[in-house]
Structures are given as C-alpha cells and as structure tokens.
Design a protein around this nucleic acid. Structure first.
Lengths: 329, 329
DNA sequence: GGGCACGATTAGATCGTTCAAAGTTTCTGG
DNA sequence: CCAGAAACTTTGAACGATCTAATCGTGCCC
C-alpha cells in the first residue's frame, strides 16, 4: 500500500516547510494566497489527513465527545436515545467532532468512566442524558471544569450549566388545548409519581391549561410507574367513576398504550394521547407528542462547540415539541 | 487541579526509569517482582492513566472501533441497532476498546468516511451492519486489509471475511414447527421480494419446515416491501381465498403488525408471529422471534480482538434466535 | 579470578503535529 | 537607495508514550 502521508510529505511535495502546511490547515489567513493554493493541491493530490493523535498530543484537545448509551430500560423509550444519538453524531461530524460511546451501570461507575476517558483519551466534552435531582455526575464534572451539556434540565435550581431540553409542559398544554377545542371537557392525565422533574413538568402543562379554561381537575389525575399494565389499570380506575373522562393525556407512550387497551372496553369512546412519539405510537396509530430530537442534538453540539471555543456559555435551550395527530385523538 | 500525571511522574515516584514503567504495563513478565509491585503502587497512588494519543502515535494502534449509526429508517427496526450498540460498547469496553460512531447517507459517503477515520483517527477496526449483495464497502475494506466484522452474512459466496449473524431460517422454522404442533396446517408466510438475503433466509425456514411436514406451500406466500400497510394488504389478500390460512409467519414485526390488523376482521382467528422482537411487539403482545443481540455483539468483539491480535481469523458465527410467545400465537 | 551469558534496567531516538521564536523576503516612505 | 515595518516562511523543541540498543549487575563455569 501507499506510504503513510504526513505533514512532511505534503511539505516536500509543495516545496514549503512543515509549519506552512500546518498554517494552511489551522490559520489559513497568515499564508499567502499562492502558497496556500499550492499546499492545498498537494494535500488533495496526496490524500493527506492530519493525524489526530499527534495533533491531540500537542494541543491537548481530542475533538472527541462522549455519550452514554443506556441499556434500553423499557424498550419503548430506547428509540428516543437512538434518534438523539444519530442527530448528535451527524451534527458533531459537521462541527469536526466525533462521538464516542460508553456504558455504565450506576453513577459511581459512570464517574469512574469519566475519569478513565479523560485520562486515557483526553475527551473534550460529555453529553449527559436524563438528569435527576441531586445528580452526582454533573457535580463531579463541574468541579473538574470538564465541559458538558445535559439533554434535560437540571432539576436543582442551583446548577448553572448549559442544557438543552424539550418543553414538556408546552407539549401537554398543546394536547390539552387540542382536546378542549375538539369539545372534550373532562380530560384526565396519567402521569408518574410527583417528584420526577420530567413528570411534574408534563403534568403542569395539562393542569394549567385545564384551569385556565375554567375546568376543575380534581379527581382527573392518576399516577403510577411507567408501563403498559400501569396505564391500563389507571384508566380503568378513572372510567369506573360517575363522570368518566372522555379523553386522557399521558406522560408517556407506554402509559398511553395501556390506556388505549382500557379505552377499547369503555362504554363511550375515549381519546388518548401519548408522549415521545415512539415507533410504537406510529405503529398503532396513537397520537403523541413528538420531541424534536435532531434539533435538540444539534443544539447540544452548538453549545459544546462554543464552550470548547473558550467562551464560557451557560446558555439554556428549551425546544417546543409538536403534536402528531393520528387515529386516537 | 492536579498536574498531568505522565509515565515520567510515575517513574520518578517509583524511582525507576520511564521504560520500566512502560514494561510493567506492556510486558510485566520481564520486570522483577519487587520492582513491579513498587511501580504498581505508584501508578494507583498517582491515579496514572496511559495517554492513548501518545501510545497510538508510537504503536499505530488506537484501540478504537467504529460503528455506523443509521437514521432509523422504519422506526420500528431502529431499536435492534440500539440494543446491538449497547452490547457492542459493553463488550468492547471489557476488551479495552472504545466504540466510535459515524453516519453516512450512502455507500460512497460511507467509504469516504472510512478513509477519513482511518487517516485521522487510525481506527483499528470496523463493524458493519446490514450487508447486501455486492457490497462495495466490504470490498473496499478488504482491499486495504482493514480489519472488520459484519453483523450479517455476506450474501456473495466469494467474500471470505469474519461475520456474525442470526440464523433467520432457524427462527422461522421454529415458529412454523410451533404452529404445526398447535394444530395449524395452512400456515402462510409474509415476506419481502426475493433477492434480499435476509428475506430469502427467513422464508426458507418456513418453506422447508412446511414441506418436510408434508404440507403444500403453493399460494401461501405473499411478498411486499416492509411496512405495516403492506402487511395488512397482504394478509387481506390471503384471507380472501377459498381456503384461507389459519396462521401467518412474518419476516418482520412491521409486516406482522399489519397482519394483526387484517386478522382482527377475519372470520376465523388467525395466529400471527413477527420477527425481531421489537419493543412494538412487546407492547401489543405480538409473538415474535428474538435475536440474541447482546451475544451477537459480544461475538463481533471476540472476532475483532483475535483479528487485531494478528491471528488471521475468518471465522463465521451463526447464532440461533429464540421464539418469544405472547398473545398472538 | 576472569570471561561469559543472562536477566533487569536505563538512555536516546522516534511517532506526527503545533508552538515559540527566529529568519527571510517584500513592501513602503522619506 | 536604504531603513524599518509588515508579511510570510522556516527551524528547533515539545507533547507522552514505545522501540531499539546499550548498560549494569549477578551468578556460573572453567
């Protein structure tokens, strides 16, 4: 095969010094037009590519971003991460960064992995997904001044790091408004136990929209862990009352799927809307709130690159999801 | 923060030379017991981690494996990749490798990306998913002697590279046998147009099992592109005949989901079984053939590591999927 | 006791790039 | 025409590891 093409090969070919080639790549404006052109030609003629390892050793930057890939807990929500990862890889690529994966069973192990990745690969930044109250990971990273962005708001008020999130409340508000416009007035909400940031947020959109429209929400909310069976149970329970709801807004597609099964046996039709627009929703015709994952990923990369360019951003981005209407509402 | 800990720091701390520290890490047997212990202590006391970039520059190996993350075509099948990726990351990690992601719109772009990744990051190996007839990617890699493994058999007989795959025929055979045992005898198959390796393989399992059991398969096979609507149409067509099938084996969960909808309106109950055991299947209670993705990923890493250790393997691994029974069969 | 082999350890060069500083050419104005 | 500045280019060192080859003890045999 062809010899390894280094910066020296290019330099010789273009009859300039190594440093001039380096300047063409990293600071083109200081190189004379004609020299630059000659070097560029040599570069493409030889198919030269800067060796990252060598560059990294000198500059201390690896142009590598790490993301955790989770073990697909429920199975349904896995595809959210999947799409997010794809978007991240694509945008990072365009910005000249590469995405590296890692796994971890728990927070301690994840922090150990940070240490490892930073030490061995000199990672430039991390993208965290799914933050929770009092997250030890963000604290660890912040303390060491490692650049990172979270996809998901920090739910502790004091954390001041850049994040990107999808406005869950806006999503459920949109759903609720749509249902109200469609003539529904007894609209229930199936959510998770109070205390999870994401869950509370999604509930809030429903609650405020209902009360703003002058409707009482008492007795219209059920909470349970995430799951299909749980969703079914919750809606059956609601339907057993005197004045059963005619529509349900759900905090997840899993709950909505369960609700859908309960709705099938109901006396009167019940509209059901889920959250996350997972493939399952598309498959069974469930209306759902769709998160702009590609956009979210792109904004994460945006924030990281400005952060890595030295400007201490602590910007926050809140994206609005869209309601995808199918057969169920 | 703490200074950077290099091999020199460790050497000074343990009162030996750099090279001895390097030997403790890479060739422990040539270092005297007592010296080794002293160095090990210094390493853990200082929290030393070998800098990959420096190591890579000298050895030419990056301990990095690249995998493509696809844009989740159908949406339903996306989760297969998701689970595979997780397994891959986990096993690679254990073997001392890291997984890097990339995307590509088409084969040409993918090959350009190989070139880029190899040149810039000195990637050690690639894992390809979803091979097809006359795949230009494997040819390109083989020509340059870049180590790679495919998840999916090469469908051109002459390609002699290591691969891992799931025995689709064994999966559909198992399903067919199960249905025969359950008393069915008119069992149909919904598949993709002849010519796709994966599709033909899955069809074969059904066909051979049926004929081996003495059943005629004439008129019991329908083919279409993958999709829910396509599956529904295909089964409706089958049910319109004089002797409609009492069960359908499908080449994908998408087709099976469509079939399920057609089956709902049928005069007599029709058993339906899908393929891939996607979250959708679990959600709607569809029986399906489950691929051992974590195991497949692990075997991919196995093959790659032996390949990277210099032993020219061209081993092939065929894993047997399992049938997950739910409500629909 | 001298020579020799063998195991353990060390010194110096090297991988491909960028930084810092010094060198060279070209331009400008008096 | 020359000094001085500006624009451009080159040289040598450094990043942190491993490779090659050399050095230092130590034990063994004649």
């Amino acid at each position: 095969m062809a010899e390894k093409v280094t910066i020296a090969t290019v330099a010789r070919h273009a009859q300039v010094s190594r440093q001039t080639v380096s300047n063409v790549l990293n600071a083109p404006h200081i190189v004379r037009e004609e020299t630059r052109r000659r070097v560029q030609e040599a570069i493409s003629a030889l198919g030269y590519r800067a060796n990252q390892a060598a560059r990294q050793m000198r500059t201390g930057r690896s142009r590598l971003i790490a993301v955790r890939i989770e073990p697909t807990r429920d199975g349904i929500n896995g595809s959210v991460l999947d799409r997010f990862l794809h978007g991240l890889t694509e945008t990072a690529d365009a910005a000249g960064y590469r995405v590296m994966l890692y796994t971890a069973r728990d927070d301690d192990q994840e922090i150990a992995t940070y240490d490892d990745l930073l030490g061995a690969y000199d990672l430039d930044a991390f993208v965290l997904t799914g933050t929770k109250h009092g997250d030890p990971r963000t604290a660890w990273l912040a303390e060491r001044e490692v650049p990172f962005v979270t996809f998901g708001r920090p739910w502790d008020a004091l954390d001041g790091h850049p994040w990107v999130d999808v406005d869950g409340a806006a999503g459920t508000a949109q759903v609720t408004r749509h249902l109200l416009d469609g003539g529904h007035d007894r609209i229930a909400f199936l959510g998770w136990p109070t205390g999870s940031g994401v869950g509370d947020d999604r509930c809030a959109g429903w609650r405020t929209t209902m009360t703003a429209a002058g409707h009482d929400v008492a007795g219209l909310r059920r909470e349970s862990e995430d799951g299909i069976a749980e969703g079914e149970r919750a809606l059956r329970d609601l339907l057993a009352h005197d004045a059963p709801p005619t529509a349900v807004v759900c905090a997840s597609d899993s709950l909505a799927l369960g609700a859908l099964q309960a709705a099938r046996d109901a006396a009167a039709p019940v509209a059901v809307v889920g959250f996350d627009d997972t493939p399952v929703a598309a498959a069974v015709g469930l209306s759902s709130v769709s998160q702009p994952l590609a956009a979210a990923a792109a904004r994460c990369v945006d924030l990281l690159t400005t952060l890595l360019d030295g400007q201490p951003t602590d910007q926050q981005v809140l994206l609005t999801p869209t309601l995808v209407l199918r057969h169920t509402a």
